[in-house]
């Protein structure tokens, strides 16, 4: 119990450290937000107010979230990698505390991103939401998986020569099991169609699998 408590303290300390660093140097966060805004605005502008199919709209929303998340999460371990402080950090807290601390920061960043871009998306594309709670649940569950897979992927690309382009290439195939059901559920939330709750279970199950796998595999890095 004490061990769990001290590990939670480490996780919280890492969340606090990254939060303060992000506040001090807002470039990454701003880039993520601006990427989402630019992508959404350019798509809305280029479709010129045309009446778009709900499936297409749902796909656009998730593509924007995915690539904006990529812009924000790719550098999750960059500070430590550049300063060479990751081994020291591992001395303070164990690898699991670092992973879950980073994952929590990634999740919070993605929640902030979605809080920012979702209303803008709905306004710019003039989307009527029929089931707001389904939409919110889908986005939240999708973000959990993106944060889990994104954090491990960011750890993998830390030593890579071409981080920016590599991150979405690595992330997309492993998050596809979240991506496809999330698009379907988002589409349903825009229409009066019946909710397929099994898809929520699929996302939830895959979120759990990704968190567990990240936790196991991060120890080998």
């Amino acid at each position: 119990m004490k061990l769990f408590g001290s590990r939670c303290d480490c996780v919280l300390a890492i969340v606090r450290k990254d939060f303060l660093l992000n506040l001090r140097r807002r470039a990454t966060f701003a880039a993520m937000m601006m990427f989402a805004l630019t992508a959404t605005a350019s798509l809305s502008l280029s479709t010129g107010g045309a009446l778009l199919d709900e499936k297409f709209l749902a796909a656009i929303l998730w593509v924007v979230i995915f690539f904006a998340a990529g812009a924000g999460l790719a550098g999750t371990f960059d500070d430590e990698a550049q300063a060479g402080t990751l081994p020291t950090l591992k001395l303070y807290g164990d690898a699991q505390a670092i992973l879950f601390g980073k994952m929590s920061v990634a999740f919070l960043s993605l929640v902030a991103l979605s809080t920012f871009i979702l209303p803008i998306f709905l306004i710019l594309f003039d989307v009527g939401v029929e089931k707001i709670f389904l939409l919110l649940a889908t986005v939240l569950l999708g973000l959990i998986g993106l944060a889990a897979a994104g954090t491990l992927t960011a750890a993998l690309t830390t030593s890579a020569a071409v981080k920016g382009g590599l991150f979405p290439i690595l992330l997309f195939p492993v998050t596809l099991p979240i991506f496809l059901p999330a698009i379907r559920l988002t589409e349903i939330s825009f229409t009066p169609a019946q909710v397929d709750s099994s898809l929520l279970v699929v996302i939830l199950a895959f979120d759990a699998i990704l968190i567990l796998a990240s936790s196991i595999l991060y120890d080998y890095l």
Partner: peptide
Amino acid sequence: KVSAVYSLLSVLT
């Protein structure tokens, strides 16, 4: 190391 981890991560799909 990283390619082994990615290989195992991708099996989850």
